[in-house]
Amino acid sequence: MTTSVLALLTLAACGTETGAGDDGGSSVDTALPVTGVKWTVDTLTVNGKQAKAPAGAHVEIDAKGRASGNFGCNQFGADVTVKGDSITVGPGQSTEMGCEKDLQKFETALSRAFAGELKAKLAGDRLTLTTPQGDTIALTSKPERPAQLVGPEWAVDSLLDGGTASSLPAEMTGKAQLTFGKDGTVRGNLGCNNVSGKATVDGSTIIFGSLASTRKMCPAPVMETEQALHHVLKGKAAYKIDGRTLSLTAADGKGLSATAIEAEPRPRK
């Protein structure tokens, strides 16, 4: 499944490229403006049913035919060869983080629908890829405005350990979240208990003060994960924002990943 998903997003990035060489390796004709562009995956349509892509799903391709990106949960990389409007994808690599149920369902659909040869059509900033069965993926090259650390609610979705990411227990889905304030504070919930305290930003580092926490007891898997999250929020942690994804990494390589949640628009009076 992972290889097929890699095929999808890699194809999304280079489906509009033409004139690939015949040397059997990956190749890209940069005549069309698709390289060096962040293509955002918008929707997937299978058997006439359209599904919105998860936040953060995107792909970028360089002039050498190397594609990389994220389909909303796992990161990927793969080589591609393009001939006319047909795209062939080489073996790909991907992280293997477990995903939340709805995201896993979307991921499975991608793996089934986007494999083998795809046809691509570019119209302005919109790219459409079509399978032989008529299923389609729609992408756009509109720049995504990076989220700011202060302000949005950051939904914690995974634990990091070096180059490995693991999902949170199902019981914690939608519960673990953090919000950084303009006054140098952080508040939120670690999946079971509410927390609050100081969070001072110094360059690419956040220095966390001692966090106050409620004392609610939850099932063992939740409490263990909460302790792991609490560990990341002790002392200094490096932070990085990529689009709408925040990663926090402690000195020992332990960390967490979170996604910025857009606020619901207020109704007009």
Rank of each mutant, 00 (worst) to 15 (best):
T88R: 13
A67V: 00
P265D: 12
N189L: 03
K38F: 05
L118R: 07
D79Y: 08
T259M: 12
A57C: 06
S4M: 09
D29F: 01
G134D: 09
T214D: 02
A53I: 01
D183S: 09
G84P: 09
L160Q: 13
K119T: 10
S213H: 11
K175I: 08
M223Y: 06
V46E: 13
D102H: 11
G116F: 02
T88Q: 15
P146R: 08
S94D: 01
C99K: 04
N47A: 05
L233P: 02
K198D: 05
E117V: 13
T16G: 13
R266A: 12
E224G: 08
L178C: 08
K254R: 12
G92V: 00
A31L: 11
K216S: 07
A115Q: 13
T18E: 06
T205L: 01
H231S: 13
G25L: 14
G184Y: 05
A123H: 11
A147Q: 09
T245A: 12
H231F: 06
A165K: 06
G92R: 00
Q177Y: 10
K175R: 13
A115K: 15
L11A: 13
C99P: 01
V59S: 04
S94H: 10
K142G: 08
A165V: 03
K236M: 07
S111H: 04
V41G: 00
V46G: 04
S196N: 14
Q133M: 12
T43R: 13
P146G: 04
I241E: 06
S111D: 03
K234F: 07
I241L: 11
R66Y: 01
T259W: 06
D161S: 15
T136Y: 11
D29Y: 04
A120P: 06
S204G: 14
N193D: 00
R268F: 10
R266V: 11
T225V: 06
T245G: 09
L233G: 07
D157W: 11
H230Q: 15
E60V: 12
K105V: 14
V195K: 13
F208C: 07
K240V: 03
T95N: 05
N193A: 06
A55L: 08
A251D: 09
G151D: 11
G191V: 06
F76L: 05
T200H: 12
G72S: 05
S4Q: 15
G235F: 10
G69C: 03
L32R: 07
V34K: 03
S213R: 10
G181H: 03
P267Q: 10
A263R: 15
N193Q: 04
A238V: 02
S213Y: 12
N193M: 06
